[in-house]
Design a protein around this nucleic acid. Structure first.
Lengths: 185, 185
DNA sequence: AAGGATGGCTAATGGAATTAGCTTTACGGC
DNA sequence: GCCGTAAAGCTAATTCCATTAGCCATCCTT
């Protein structure tokens, strides 16, 4: 029996491939094992159980998203940075809808996930620093940004909008709304 | 064996009670049967299968939400109606977070669900009629409203915001952002 | 009071997650 | 180069859930 050369990250890779190709509902240990070329119980050598695997997928997505947002704001500030971050957010979801949709569920509190969320939040907060907001205002603004970006993204990723028509325009108007709102808080 | 007096609606009632109490992940036919005082296979006399039950729950939630939004806008118009609708949306989710979270998944197209979505959308569109928007603008505005309300709601319902602190204020600011945006499209 | 439709049951099947315990591979220290 | 151990696989077995088949009791209509 030659070894498959699996690792926790390799298992997550397979899981990601599955949610990308067939959606979050298709994420089972059987399917992951099949794609990894291994019997199901072998996966337990790398991940604790299915819930843990889901958490790791979640974590991967948060990290990828944070990286993309981080790149997007490089060298930008103010409205320009806010627009860039919103566009980058959606572009990630458009590129990987299954992956993003796989992230939705409310997981038990996990320090790694909280850390990843924190990184994401840090990028957003840094971007909002250009506006003259006190601490509370900053939190409210960050929540508004997340709500709008996530709301649009999850609706688009899960086919929540009837027709895909003019989604670009809808999103640009939404961005405009957010930017406008930041100037009148 | 006395009859349980079940019906499709009764099964959905039990399902709703479960997602309210234990969250969407706890929605299994076993659990529903247990709560309904019946053996699992008996449920198949009332619903086709688990996927169908999920769809019915979805439908119930959409209807309840539409009813609440409909009541909220009665006798209001313009900014006032938009604010009312946004507040009603969140109030539903705050009252029934599990129920709302149970609705997220992307279901196969179902005419009943599309009809319910259509009712919801109709209320939103009617509310937006006060603004001077062409057809496309109306669609974009409705999408913006849904994205923001849903985004905030789902983040709140699934514990996506770190601390529950000042969520009221955050939401009021978000509403303000939406209303502001409607005046500058 | 009969009889069909309806609602409930038990038994059986199949798939997925998980655990236990065995075997073999890889590899670091001698 | 050999050996022992840990890691990575495997098979077998258990449990839980969804689903189907087929049986029996109950209700409603006449």
């Amino acid at each position: 029996m030659p070894r498959a050369g699996l690792s926790p990250n390799g298992v997550v890779d397979a899981a990601i491939a599955i949610v990308d190709a067939e959606g979050p509902a298709a994420l089972t240990l059987s399917a992951v094992a099949g794609r990894a070329g291994v019997q199901t119980p072998s996966l337990y050598k790398h991940v604790r159980n299915l819930a843990e695997l889901r958490r790791l997928v979640n974590l991967r997505v948060l990290d990828e998203l944070a990286e993309r947002l981080g790149e997007a704001v490089l060298g930008r500030s103010g409205d320009d940075a806010v627009r860039a971050i919103m566009r980058a957010y959606r572009s990630y979801v458009v590129d990987h809808p299954g992956r993003y949709a796989a992230m939705d569920q409310a997981p038990d509190p996990d320090p790694r996930l909280e850390a990843a969320s924190g990184r994401l939040l840090g990028i957003i907060l840094a971007t909002l620093r250009a506006y003259e907001l006190d601490d509370a205002g900053l939190v409210h603004a960050a929540r508004a940004l997340r709500s709008t970006a996530h709301g649009f993204a999850i609706l688009e990723a899960s086919g929540g909008f009837g027709l895909p028509q003019d989604l670009e325009t809808s999103y640009e108007l939404l961005i405009q709304m957010v930017v406008g709102g930041l100037h009148r808080d």
